[in-house]
């Protein structure tokens, strides 16, 4: 297993654009640590490229971003790149973090049966808010930051070599901090609102981890 990471970053509509932009920070952290990064971005986030790189490079850490379902993760233009009952064996021996709705529900356990070390993801839809005025400059979107920074904490913690349970703890702690921030009545109503708390709480609650939580990258 090579100490390299593979990340998928499709970018073909608003949701995937945000994940694409937000994961730049994760890639930067990995490169700063001298970790080999296979960045399958935009149209390269397709099944053929994904399969080929997974076999050829055999990364130890896989970060999947994109739409999905309880049995799959999708790439560019909604193409399914990994699906339970089809090719989950490709995840064998790896740590996977999937920011892809509901994939932890079925694909997660199936990947464990196929021999993955761990699968971290969401067992329900991942929900996040965006500021319409920041669509063209997503990296400056303070509203999306409330939701996507906790996800980044998890990825970055894994990249740093922390144990999975520690990475998950840091992510949930970040969600908690943002919830407390929103519940604080002193903050500016412009950027923050306690009305977003249910959605943060939802994402935090349904982030789940299958497998060996003591493992690390």
């Amino acid at each position: 297993m090579s100490k390299s990471l593979l990340i998928t970053r499709p970018n073909y509509e608003i949701t995937t654009r945000y994940l694409y932009v937000w994961n730049k920070e994760v890639i930067k952290e990995a490169k700063n640590r001298g970790i080999g990064v296979m960045d399958l971005r935009r149209e390269k986030a397709n099944k053929k490229e994904f399969t080929g790189r997974m076999i050829k490079v055999n990364p130890a850490l896989v970060l999947l971003n994109g739409h999905g379902g309880n049995e799959c993760v999708r790439g560019h233009n909604d193409e399914i790149i990994v699906r339970a009952g089809d090719n989950e064996e490709i995840l064998k021996g790896k740590i996977i973090y999937a920011l892809s709705c509901q994939s932890a529900l079925l694909l997660g356990p199936k990947s464990m049966e196929a021999g993955s070390i761990a699968f971290i993801g969401y067992s329900r839809n991942f929900v996040f808010f965006t500021d319409d005025s920041k669509i063209s400059r997503s990296e400056n979107d303070k509203v999306a930051k409330l939701f996507l920074d906790p996800s980044n904490r998890l990825s970055i913690s894994l990249v740093k070599g922390n144990a999975i349970f520690e990475a998950v703890r840091k992510s949930k702690k970040h969600f908690s901090e943002n919830i407390r921030k929103l519940l604080n009545s002193d903050v500016s109503p412009q950027d923050y609102s306690s009305s977003l708390v249910p959605y943060l709480a939802w994402d935090m609650k349904y982030q789940v981890c299958h497998g060996n939580q003591n493992a690390c990258f």
Partner: peptide, 20 residues
């Protein structure tokens, strides 16, 4: 409760997409 969400925000919900 939805009507208390600040104007100018949208939400991404799973694979359903983005909604005002």
């Amino acid at each position: 409760r939805l009507s208390t969400i600040p104007k100018g925000l949208s939400v991404s919900i799973g694979s359903w997409g983005n909604f005002k």
